[in-house]
Computed example of a mutant assay.
Amino acid sequence: MPKSKSNLIQSVDRALQILECFSKRENELGVTQIANRLDLHKSTTFGLLSTLENRGYLKQNLENGKYRLGIKLFELGKLVEDGMDLRTSSLPYLKKLVYKYDETAHLAMRDGNQIIYIDKVEGESGIKMSSQVGKRAHVYCTGVGKAVLAFMPEKDAEEIMKNIKFHQFTCNTITDSNELKEELKKIRKRKYCIDNEEIEVGLKCVAAPIMDYNGEAVGSISISGPTSRMNHEKMNLIAKDLKEIIMKISETLGYKNV
Rank of each mutant, 00 (worst) to 15 (best):
G219L: 08
R188S: 05
T142A: 05
A35P: 02
M129Q: 12
K204R: 13
N163K: 12
G65L: 03
K146N: 06
R68A: 12
K78N: 08
A147R: 07
I187S: 01
S43V: 14
S224A: 15
L149E: 08
G143C: 09
G202M: 11
N178E: 15
S224R: 02
L8E: 15
S130P: 09
S11V: 08
K128M: 08
S125G: 06
E183L: 02
E75R: 11
K256L: 09
G134D: 11
G126H: 04
S90A: 15
K100V: 07
G65D: 03
S23T: 13
H138W: 02
Q10P: 01
L79T: 11
Y192T: 01
N27P: 01
K72Y: 00
E103K: 10
G219D: 03
M230N: 02
D85P: 08
A137G: 15
K155S: 13
I174P: 01
S50K: 14
D39F: 09
L97F: 05
R110T: 06
G202C: 04
K155R: 14
N231Y: 12
S222V: 04
L237Q: 14
T45E: 01
N196K: 04
S222F: 04
M109T: 14
G254C: 01
K78W: 06
H232P: 00
Y140E: 15
I127Q: 11
D195S: 15
K185P: 01
N61A: 05
M109L: 12
E200A: 08
V80K: 14
L107E: 05
S23F: 01
N61V: 03
N54M: 05
I187H: 04
L91M: 12
K243P: 00
D212P: 05
R14Y: 07
E103T: 04
H41N: 14
N7K: 14
G83P: 00
D176Q: 11
I238F: 10
D82L: 14
K135D: 06
E28N: 06
M1Q: 09
E103Q: 15
I115T: 13
T45L: 02
K146S: 06
S177T: 15
I221E: 06
D111S: 12
L184I: 09
G77A: 03
D241F: 07
S131A: 15
L184S: 05
D156H: 12
I199R: 09
K78R: 13
R87A: 10
A208G: 08
N196Y: 11
M211V: 09
D102L: 08
S89P: 00
Y57I: 04
L52H: 03
K191H: 14
N172H: 15
F74A: 13
